[in-house]
């Protein structure tokens, strides 16, 4: 299976427009629509960005791990999975970074401090660096592209082990970070209606943004690959004196 684009142009345009619309809705609901929290005051509004960022980081790394597994499995092996894994991991690193920074900004007024060395925060920072390392690993040039892609896929699956650790850290260990509000073990969200609605708007907005950026980053990977082929053809042409046909 070889694909130049992930989304059809019309689908991409619709996703792009919906992303902007939902982000505007998120700003309106996040700043004005949702009521002020009883305990934390306006500082709690950071939640509408922090929580979707963290969830999208999980989703992005899940896609990376799934695509890596599909690449490793001989029957489904295709360049498309390798590229999707790489593109999704970069977005996952971005969302993890956002979750860390926004969490820090939320923690300062509420906990009283920017950072705490508790299990949730440390495992999340670890997740950030694990996938940053994965992105660096993908950049190491190799004379054996399939071997390198296999190596990267294994690295992605190893790094993904940290995702459930991050999610359950607040249940397994004592942390300063609060426990899950929505995906708690009882699956009984403890959040007021409009606040929950705003959180879902944020999650939808970030998911659309993720899909749009994934499509764009995939396209960039295809173009990069094409450029490498063109450069190789030129290099051969220079040495042999034969003008290579560029496809």
């Amino acid at each position: 299976m070889e694909r130049d684009e992930l989304l059809a142009p019309i689908v991409r345009r619709i996703v792009g427009v919906l992303t902007i619309v939902s982000l505007v809705a998120l700003v309106l609901f996040g700043l004005w629509g949702a009521p002020t929290d009883e305990v934390q005051g306006d500082a709690q509004r950071v939640m509408y960005l922090h929580v979707p960022s963290a969830w999208l980081a999980y989703l992005a790394f899940f896609i990376t791990a799934s695509a890596s597994a599909l690449f490793l499995w001989r029957r489904t092996r295709a360049d498309v999975w390798d590229r999707v894994a790489g593109a999704s991991a970069e977005l996952g690193v971005m969302f993890t970074g956002l979750a860390l920074v926004l969490g820090s900004i939320w923690g300062r007024p509420v906990w009283g401090f920017w950072w705490a060395w508790d299990a949730r925060l440390v495992s999340t920072a670890l997740l950030f660096f694990l996938f940053l390392g994965y992105c660096a690993l993908r950049r190491i040039p190799s004379s054996d592209p399939v071997g390198a892609a296999k190596r990267n896929a294994i690295a992605a699956l190893i790094a993904f082990v940290d995702v459930p650790i991050v999610h359950f850290s607040v249940e397994w260990w004592r942390t300063l970070h609060q426990k899950a509000t929505v995906f708690n073990p009882q699956l009984n969200p403890e959040i007021h209606g409009v606040m929950a609605l705003t959180l879902w708007i944020g999650t939808i907005a970030f998911t659309l943004l993720y899909v749009y950026l994934l499509d764009r980053r995939y396209r960039l990977a295809v173009l990069e690959h094409g450029r490498a082929d063109v450069e190789l053809a030129h290099a051969i042409a220079e040495r042999t004196g034969v003008k290579a046909g560029v496809t």
Binding site: E38, Q40, V110, W111, Q178, E190
Partner: peptide
């Protein structure tokens, strides 16, 4: 020498 607030995971507007 350091007090941290451990807030809960429930969110609600003031009564």
């Amino acid at each position: 020498d350091r007090i941290l607030i451990r807030h809960g995971a429930k969110y609600t507007p003031p009564k």
